[in-house]
């Protein structure tokens, strides 16, 4: 996995996060308590002198891991986050796109409408999935939340100011250029707090975190951030290998994203 220059990645992300905050009237960020969105918050604190100047939304289907809830509380207190919990309803047997493609977007839609958010920071990365690699830094969703990926707006140079459809909302992707290993190197460098589920227990760890229904741990002995970085230096497995919804059928991710999944 390619390691990039962290100072450059940091500058780029800070620029995009500031641009988003200053461009849109009412912006929020999605926070799943995972490594990526927590890193995004750490970058936001750098951009805004120690503050996170917008609300963070957790889409909560009540079946996240106990560790995740605890981590949410601890960091929300420590970083003084304006946390919005968007409750999504879930039935016991619901898995995969029935939940992530429908339930979670529904809950998010409700919260977005209630607060009138016109932009949403989402911490996806290009290297996660081929479809995510097609995203732009700022990517409009129409009023039905559709992503018109065949007719994306021109995004030239680092001017993320192309005309956007105002009826829907805009997804902002400040971490698009980061690779998984860069996130972990940044976590190490900046001592970004992370969910303990990422570290190996009894020979298994979570490499990508979703909720309890759809995420399975992978075989790993990585017990520290250093171990994780070493593991990623040599792995040829995919990061989202433990996420069942990605495997359901071909193009699952494309369909999920078209439906509004993040």
């Amino acid at each position: 996995m390619i390691k990039q220059e962290l100072p450059e990645l940091e500058e780029k992300s800070i620029y995009v996060i500031r641009e988003a905050k200053l461009k849109f009237k009412k912006i929020a960020a999605l926070w799943s308590m995972g490594k990526d969105s927590t890193t995004m918050l750490a970058l936001t604190r750098k951009a805004f002198l120690g503050k996170v100047p917008f609300p963070v939304i957790h889409i909560d289907n009540s079946i996240d891991f106990p560790e995740t809830y605890q981590f949410r509380q601890e960091l929300a207190d420590k970083w003084n986050l304006d946390l919005i919990v968007a409750k999504s309803e879930i039935k016991p047997d619901m898995v995969g796109s029935a939940c992530c493609g429908k339930n979670k977007p529904e809950a998010l839609k409700k919260v977005m409408a209630e607060y009138g958010f016109d932009a949403l920071i989402v911490s996806i990365r290009r290297d996660e999935h081929g479809v995510r690699a097609k995203e732009r830094y700022m990517s409009p969703r129409d009023k039905n939340w559709k992503w018109d990926y065949k007719n994306q707006v021109a995004e030239l140079w680092d001017d993320y100011t192309s005309k956007l459809d105002t009826k829907g909302h805009v997804r902002v992707h400040p971490l698009l250029d980061w690779n998984e290993i860069d996130i972990w190197r940044y976590v190490r460098q900046e001592r970004v707090p992370v969910n303990p589920l990422y570290f190996s227990r009894n020979g298994y760890r979570y490499r990508s975190l979703g909720c309890t229904h759809c995420t399975v741990p992978l075989k790993s002995n990585a017990k520290s951030v250093d171990d994780i970085i070493k593991e990623l230096e040599v792995t040829k497995d995919e990061e989202r290998g433990g996420r069942s919804m990605d495997k359901e059928r071909e193009y699952a991710m494309l369909r999920l994203r078209a439906l509004g999944y993040m």
Binding site: A133, Y251, L254
Partner: peptide, 12 residues
Amino acid sequence: SFTEEREQEMTY
């Protein structure tokens, strides 16, 4: 990676 890209063999 897009369905259409593979089926129509073109990059969108």
